[in-house]
């Protein structure tokens, strides 16, 4: 899968370190993410891949007593400057969580939530956004007859796709996915994977996963983290067949982790 056009860096992470209190969890991470690629973060639990992911849309701001060094840039602009509009940033960088978290509202209201809080009231715009994002998230056929019933009645896989639809309704540039399939059965996970591959045409996707097969199936590039350090990053094919580092090889072949 080397045919991806590597036009420009959409995200560049420069010497990024992160601390919970005095405990350093990320060490000098340097990483580039380019347009319309899927990059997978792999590594054993506690290696800091989720923390890095949550640093990209500043979700870690919610946790008290955290610190960072270095910088993350979104299309050449630092996201850690003082005057940055965090809400604007989160609109540009959407996020899917490990546990699907639909709002206790109707399917329709879940999807238009981001648009409503942005002040959009035009019914036609909202209706179109719902249809478009549900189609993109491959959920339209399953729910088109019950858009106004509660989102809590959907199955696990469906709610995760609803969360994807909710995120893409805001039209972000990048979608962060934090182990989106780990709570799902293989069939539901397969559907999500198909959706992700479809989404690649329009969005840049960063996905954290514990599932090696998943990473190798869907990602263009893979980054391997271990104990807070970025060990290796390269084309997925290369990482899985012929990694440079021994740690990477050990992890991928299942010798630890």
């Amino acid at each position: 899968m080397t045919s991806v056009k590597r036009n420009s860096d959409i995200i560049s992470i420069n010497n990024f370190s992160f601390y919970y209190g005095l405990n350093q969890v990320l060490f000098d991470i340097d990483l580039r993410v380019v347009n319309n690629e899927i990059i997978a973060f792999i590594g054993p639990s506690g290696c800091g891949k989720s923390t890095l992911l949550r640093s990209i849309n500043r979700m870690n701001d919610l946790i008290e007593n955290t610190n960072h060094e270095g910088d993350i840039q979104l299309i050449g602009q630092s996201i850690y400057t003082r005057d940055l509009d965090v809400i604007g940033l989160r609109k540009r960088v959407g996020m899917i969580f490990q546990k699907s978290n639909p709002f206790p509202k109707s399917i329709y209201e879940n999807i238009v939530f981001g648009l409503r809080i942005a002040g959009i009231k035009d019914k036609e715009v909202l209706d179109n956004a719902v249809e478009e994002s549900l189609i993109n998230a491959a959920l339209w056929d399953e729910v088109k007859d019950r858009l106004h019933s509660s989102a809590l009645g959907l199955s696990g896989g469906q709610t995760q796709r609803l969360c994807i639809a909710r995120t893409i309704a805001i039209k972000p540039e990048i979608i962060l996915m934090d182990e989106p399939c780990s709570a799902l059965d293989p069939i539901a996970a397969g559907k999500i994977e198909e959706t992700i591959l479809e989404l690649k045409k329009k969005f840049t996707i960063i996905i954290v996963t514990h599932n090696m097969q998943q990473a190798s199936r869907i990602s263009d590039r893979t980054a391997f983290f271990y104990l807070g350090k970025l060990i290796e990053c390269g084309d997925t094919e290369h990482i899985f067949s012929n990694p440079h580092e021994k740690q990477t090889e050990d992890y991928i072949s299942g010798r630890f982790g």
Binding site: R90, G94, F97, N101, P102, G114, I117, A118, T167, I170
Partner: peptide, 27 residues
């Protein structure tokens, strides 16, 4: 109210107040 709900709201671009008023308080 589960943290996931707050995070979902914030990740959709809601301000803290919007998140509170539209999601956390009703729940």
């Amino acid at each position: 109210v589960p943290r996931g709900l707050r995070e979902a709201g914030l990740a959709c671009g809601a301000s803290k107040w919007q998140c509170l008023y539209r999601i956390v308080l009703p729940a």
